[in-house]
Nucleic acid binder design. Structure first.
Length: 432
DNA sequence: TCTGGGGTCCTAGGACCC
DNA sequence: TCTGGGGTCCTAGGACCC
């Protein structure tokens, strides 16, 4: 048995904890550069604001309907998330933190009335953090997720489901008839794992509701769609196929990407941006004690605008896996120089660290040379500690190799060994 | 004028091998 | 017309998630 605990309109709810005057008003939280809406209050949803709606398309609602827009404050949301998660953990013996606002709780061995227990946990979270949650319970993760959707929808739209399902919905406690009626009243697109594409295909095939999907033959689903959808069908039928991921597994890739506030055309600001991306990505990498074997860099023009299109990426294999910002930056910047071409309005770029390994693998098996040895590793630790203490971006390495560029700092003048300068291998440029 | 930033998994198809 | 039959590994791209 699983529960899914999910904060309602999470970012908006976090903001409301500190600005109670926002209660009852239509509120959205905007992405970076205030580009688009990434969280909406119920009132904003009522106004028809879609998830991901560009701000310039909905800003008129500020005047007409008092829509309030806030710039995202991710450190705050992360902090609130930690508090909610630790309270949600009280629901059962195991917890998988699935996203910033959601966690699955394994209920194996928990006795008593699960619905009542969930009610108490929900109340405690609300009282201690100010964040309202929905809790869904089911025999599989997919059913718990669905139950959570029903709990939240029943609260927001009182006519959609029976009132008892509001806030807490335990699908495993329903009679067969009620369960059927509930699943039949829910659109197939609400199922975890059924997105826009598959949803449309299912509807074309006459599968409209969750009940329709749950009744399908798994083997048929597998041959006509995929093993992924087959698992979903089995889970809807109560056959657990997706286990609880107790401890967070190390990331297999780490990305740092951003849209630019205004388009970039020159190489220098692009290099500057990519240097920062590498710094952030490398920090995440060191936090999980990992090493990267490849670095990918990309840049592109806006897909929403007319004009010359540019969309390139390059993957640079490293001779040795590393977590050293300078070495990663060196590879990334050489990549930038190779894909860069003047004459384009670049709106987004990013860095991805690929083929990640745990760092103990290398230390046991390879001899580190001086540039990647203990001194460099301690320098990186100091860098991370300072940035943690004084805020992200307090200190970063100067970009290497751009004559006359500003913000030079220590690393650039360092002695270089052959390995240092040839840590990545040359490969052809990928063009899309 | 203005459109987020992360991730994961699966599959198809090509390269290469015997 | 017809052009072996498997394997494995890698990559690109699709689809999904929050």
């Amino acid at each position: 048995m699983f529960a899914l605990v999910d904060g309602n309109n999470f970012y908006v709810s976090c903001e409301r904890v500190f600005r109670p005057s926002l209660q009852g008003r239509p509120v959205v939280v905007l992405s970076n550069n205030d580009g688009c809406a990434i969280a909406r209050s119920n009132e904003a949803k009522e106004l028809g604001v879609a998830m991901g709606a560009p701000w310039f398309q909905i800003r008129h609602l500020a005047e007409s309907d008092g829509l309030v827009a806030l710039s995202a404050n991710f450190p705050l949301y992360g902090d609130m998330s930690d508090r909610v998660m630790s309270l949600a953990a009280g629901l059962g013996p195991q917890q998988e933190i699935y996203s910033i606002d959601e966690s699955f709780v394994g209920l194996h061995g928990v006795r008593g009335d699960l619905t009542e227990r969930s009610r108490r946990v929900r109340d405690r979270i609300l009282q201690w953090t100010g964040i309202p949650c929905g809790i869904g319970i089911g025999t599989t993760k997919t059913l718990a997720k669905l139950a959570n959707h029903i709990a939240k929808t029943a609260e927001r739209k009182p006519t959609s489901y029976p009132g008892e399902m509001s806030q807490i919905c335990n699908l495993s406690a329903l009679s067969a008839q009620t369960l059927e009626a509930t699943l039949a009243a829910t659109d197939v697109g609400e199922v975890w794992g059924v997105g826009r594409r598959i949803g449309a295909q299912l509807r074309d095939a006459g599968v409209q509701t969750v009940w329709d999907l749950a009744r399908m033959d798994p083997a048929t689903v597998r041959s006509r769609w995929s093993v992924v959808l087959e698992r979903t069908v089995l889970e809807l039928q109560g056959v657990p196929c997706i286990g609880l991921d107790d401890e967070p597994s190390p990331k297999k890739e780490i990305a740092s990407t951003r849209s630019f506030g205004r388009p970039i055309t020159d190489l220098a600001p692009l290099i500057e941006a990519v240097s920062e991306f590498v710094g952030r990505a490398a920090e995440k990498l060191r936090k999980q004690s990992g090493l990267a074997s490849q670095v990918l860099v990309f840049a592109h023009t806006s897909p929403h605008r007319t004009g010359p299109r540019f969309n390139r990426s390059i993957t640079l294999p490293l001779r040795r896996p590393t977590a050293d910002t300078a070495l990663l930056a060196q590879a990334a910047l050489s990549g930038v120089r190779r894909i860069y071409e003047p004459g384009y309005q670049l709106t987004k770029a990013g860095v991805m660290l690929l083929d990640l390994l745990p760092d103990h693998v290398q230390q046991g098996e390879l001899n580190l040379d001086q540039d990647t040895g203990p001194d460099r590793s301690r320098l990186m630790s100091a860098l991370d500690a300072l940035n943690f203490r004084y805020g992200k971006g307090t200190l970063h390495l100067a970009s290497t190799g751009v004559p006359g560029e500003s913000r030079q700092w220590g690393m650039r003048q360092e002695r270089r060994t052959p390995n240092y300068t040839t840590n990545f291998m040359e490969i052809p440029v990928a063009r899309a």
